[in-house]
Design a protein around this nucleic acid. Structure first.
Length: 496
RNA sequence: GCCGCAUUCGUCUAGAGGCCCAGGACACCGCCCUCUCAAGGCGGAGAUCACCGGUUCGAAUCCGGUAUGCGGUACCA
């Protein structure tokens, strides 16, 4: 048996959607697991809604996720890859025309001259009669003469495919046997618009046939289109591919995930600092599981374990909390240099937003890694976590300097004493291990709770009540700035 | 309306007739660790397996029906 050929066929009418990314991932997983070929095809026949910016967003997103395709369209000056080019539907128009002609010649399709008004009236009448909407077949049996009249009148002709009668069935890999009575398909459906442009349900089949796609893996929302596709494959004289309809990703209210109710653009997740390993891992686990208790898996481990037959049938609610947890898991698994590399753009964003005053050198970031990696649910959290390290002036509420058990005077005395203690440690010995003992001793000598003393110092040097461990933070700041900030805090308290 | 698909803790899921009065993970709660916040460890709470009926010595697992939800029903993709 020949190797599988799987494809993702996004339409550039919006940014890369979580659902498209998941479908792409499952196609990729199936191709890689079986040693097959993963193909990218751009479905850009909806010219009105397609844009090059969306196309770029989609391609970049797929690349970012690591879903590299074996065959695909030309992009940014790079030639198309693969023996079935072009991989962009607007460039394949002649193929659809040829297929249309064949269908027309065999009378498996026919021109339809119905106007939108007529169609609309039909639909309304059916609705009023509580009948399911379907094409009434007005043009199905036009004589040569009648057609000639329409042509002479210059009426545009859409092309309709004859659905015939009977039951169409197929064996869906995830759902099993699915059957539809052709009578419920809504009548002969349009495959080419009046303006000559072909429709999705048609081109998808022409292309899947031409590209020898063996497995059509897509969202469940396409399940009811499948009988039309099966009919078309047969009419075109091409063997049908296997179908696998994936469960939908859902909004919290269990409706199909949508922009209205959820964050759906992959680029938004990237911008927040989710990393590809986590997103891929999370998406793979929506609708599929290994059957073991393994959950944190690399894409290669998933490829190894993936089976289409193990995919679920029921929809899955997108759970951001779980994604965040996985993101943390993966951030902690990154090699230090890799993490620095990925963190840098997020620090740059802070700088550009004016939330920090300078860009820290990599050495500074590297030194921080041990204390920040377990505190980053997303890379974008870096600013909130340690942005105070890279600003000239701290902005905070003076009241924070006074722990609950203390009054202003105590805080003032304590910070002054802490300043002296820290100064006494000196720049040469400015290490966490050298700073902690004397400050603990100070608290003990004055009968202060160490937590209170440390909290006052923490706020004085960071402006925040939640930070990485205090002594590591002091070291990261360096002796000069620690003393300057302590002085500033002491000054504040003097006036409080 | 019609057609189709689905239904195990709040969420993601394990489960393919006895191992399940249902296991894991996220979230939640408590404890431990602890200078705060995390991370980590331990523990807890949380599912009459949608419902009803059948098959069977025995059903979350098989069969039928019902309910609910979702998807589709375009000269969108």
């Amino acid at each position: 048996m020949s190797k599988p050929r799987d494809r993702i066929a996004p339409s550039p009418t919006g940014p890369l959607h979580i659902g498209t990314a998941r479908t792409a991932l499952f196609n990729y997983l199936h191709a890689r697991h079986t040693g097959g070929t993963f193909i990218l095809r751009l479905e850009d026949t909806d010219q009105a809604r397609s844009s090059i910016a969306y196309e770029k967003d989609i391609l970049d997103g797929l690349h970012w996720l690591g879903l590299h395709w074996d065959e695909g369209p030309e992009i940014a000056g790079e030639a198309a890859r693969g023996p079935y080019a072009p991989y962009r539907q607007m460039l394949r128009l002649p193929l659809y025309e040829a297929a249309t002609k064949r269908l027309l010649a065999a009378d498996m399709a026919y021109p339809c001259y119905c106007t939108p008004e007529e169609l609309d009236a039909d639909r309304k009448a059916q609705e009023a009669a509580k009948l399911p909407p379907r094409y009434v077949g007005r043009c199905a049996a036009l004589t040569r003469e009648e057609r000639a009249v329409c042509v002479a009148e210059g009426r545009p002709a859409a092309i309709r495919f004859r659905v015939g009668t009977g039951v169409v069935g197929f064996d869906d890999i995830v759902r099993g046997r699915v059957e539809f009575d052709v009578a419920n398909l809504g009548g002969d459906f349009v495959i080419v618009r009046g303006d000559g442009s072909p429709l999705y349900n048609f081109v998808v089949v022409v292309d899947d046939a031409a590209m020898e796609i063996s497995h059509v893996i897509r969202g469940e929302d396409h399940l009811s289109n499948t009988p039309k596709h099966v009919l078309l494959f047969r009419a075109l004289g091409h063997p049908e591919p296997r179908f696998a309809h994936l469960p939908l990703i859902l909004n919290p209210d269990r409706t199909k995930m949508s922009k209205r109710k959820s964050q759906t653009a992959i680029s938004d997740y990237i911008a927040e600092g989710f990393i590809r390993e986590a997103l891929v891992n999370y998406l793979a686990l929506l609708g599929w599981a290994t059957g073991t208790e393994e959950e944190v898996l690399s894409i290669d481990e998933i490829v190894e374990r993936f089976e289409l037959a193990d995919v679920h049938k029921g929809g899955a609610v997108f759970d951001r909390e779980r994604l965040e947890w996985l993101n943390g898991q993966w951030i902690r698994r990154l090699e230090p240099e890799d993490l620095i590399e990925r963190l840098r753009p997020f620090v740059a964003v802070q700088l550009a937003a004016g939330r920090i005053d300078w860009m820290p050198p990599d050495d500074d970031l590297r030194a921080l890694l041990p204390v920040i990696s377990e505190r980053l649910p997303t890379l974008g959290a870096i600013g909130d976590l340690v942005g105070f390290l890279w600003v000239h002036e701290l902005v905070y509420d003076t009241g924070l300097l006074v722990p609950k058990r203390w009054d202003v005077a105590t805080a003032h005395v304590a910070l002054a004493a802490a300043r002296a203690t820290i100064a006494a440690v000196g720049a040469v010995a400015f290490e966490a291990d050298e700073l902690e003992p004397p400050l603990r001793a100070l608290a003990e000598a004055r009968d202060w709770k160490v937590g209170d003393l440390f909290m006052a110092i923490r706020v004085a040097v960071t402006g925040r009540t939640a930070t990485p461990p205090l002594f590591d933070t002091l070291v990261a700041l360096g002796p000069e700035r620690v003393l300057i900030r302590l002085d500033a805090a002491i000054e504040r308290l003097a006036h409080a």
